[in-house]
Design a protein around this nucleic acid. Structure first.
Lengths: 225, 225
DNA sequence: CGTGCAGTTGAGCAAATTCAACGCTTGTGG
DNA sequence: CCACAAGCGTTGAATTTGCTCAACTGCACG
């Protein structure tokens, strides 16, 4: 649960880092100028429709953003891991809520500060734009996942998490089955059953429920896109 | 099928136009500096993985962007109506393909020109950012639609189209049932059946298959979010 | 007048959900 | 230390939803 703590690489993993230098430079501004805050498991970082005064960067732990629909269903918009930036909005209000999935540390920086910097410094403006585009790509990927079958969704999710968790074929999931289900638009039972099925066809191994070992990426990938 | 031709309002409808002035100003730059091009029904405007050299603004008609997955399924990313801007990408390549749904006119402007302008002119840069954020919001909405039931998806789609088509409760759909299905992640049969059901509960009327009259927005909205 | 395309409708089937029960782990209080 | 409740995950059975396959209609176009 705290296995991510040491990881302080500046760029979101899994993104080919074209512009790595400028990214490093201006994203580190966030860290340099921001204030570090700790959030306990399930603590709210911000709520839907609250003023979006800050940008956030995950230092350790994991964050989920979500919306609760009128009928009570919860849709998770994204999971953010160490190095990821979240919380920027088009308007002045947050369109999602954000919570810590597990005990997490987050760096905050005033949005106004960034906006002000961006107005004067082109590289900051470009960085802001890049982060937004990255987010756009991420959401577009999410759309492509949501039209697939349950098995494909879970496979895609596991591959995505593996890509974002550097290192081996082993992934420690910080989030619950319910979180995964709400992210993939499935029920918790379907996620569970699908995992079991993937294990039974030797695509993955499940040493424990939160620990997934990718045993056959080809099989998982075939289910992908 | 050509009912959209006259409509040349500059802003995408349905978005609260904060910054309307600057939007108008810099979006009209696109029109002033761009070249007008006509595309026949089903003509390709650009293809996936082609260099993204241009930005596009719909003058008349309707555009769809889409991806074809490895298994042959087609996912439509978005429909663009007169006034909408499309075709901007994070990287240098298009991540979707774009086609004219019906005979359409589109204004093109070199991406390099816009980028160059943005570097010197802050208002253009801000506009580029705003358009990107708008797109991000649109895709996030799309995600929320895709987790719902078939009936809710179709209802949401019709409300969205009605919001974007100014005027009455009557919507002329430029796209086929297949397009709608591929946008909503459903089959053509399910879309058709759902429409029929919505008609039978008096939520809509179907004078013809491409013409939808919203008769009871409350019913449709209840199905929404 | 026939052909092809777009849309609708029906019947059977497969996939995912719902409802329910159960196991395992963790934390709490007697 | 044990008992017990709560949370999380898994599994099973019944049900619902949407998909597949197929037939059929209306319409535009040659």
């Amino acid at each position: 649960m705290t296995q991510n703590a040491a990881q302080t690489r500046s760029l979101r993993t899994g993104v080919p880092n074209r512009e790595a230098v400028s990214s490093e430079a201006s994203e580190s501004i966030i860290e340099a100028m921001g204030t570090r805050m700790a959030f306990k498991r399930n603590a709210e970082i911000y709520g839907e429709n609250e003023p979006a005064d800050y940008l956030y960067k995950v230092a350790s732990g994991a964050i989920r953003t979500y919306k609760v629909l009128t009928d009570g269903r919860r849709q998770i918009g994204a999971f953010y891991l160490p190095g990821d930036v979240f919380g920027f909005e088009n308007g002045d209000l947050h369109t999602f809520s954000a919570e810590a999935i597990c005990d997490s540390k987050v760096v905050l920086i005033r949005r106004g500060t960034i906006i002000g910097l961006a107005a004067r410094d082109n590289s900051v403006a470009r960085e802001l734009y890049t982060v937004t585009c990255r987010e756009l790509e991420r959401v577009q990927e999410h759309v492509l996942v949501l039209i697939k079958s349950a098995e494909e969704r879970v496979a895609s999710f596991l591959l995505e998490m593996a890509k974002r968790t550097p290192g081996a074929n082993q992934v420690q999931l910080p989030m619950s089955r319910q979180d995964i289900a709400d992210y993939l638009g499935l029920t918790i039972e379907t996620v569970s059953r699908t995992m079991t099925r993937l294990e039974s066809v030797a695509a993955i191994a499940l040493p424990s429920s939160r620990c997934i070992v990718l045993r056959n990426r080809a099989t998982l990938g075939r289910l992908n896109s």
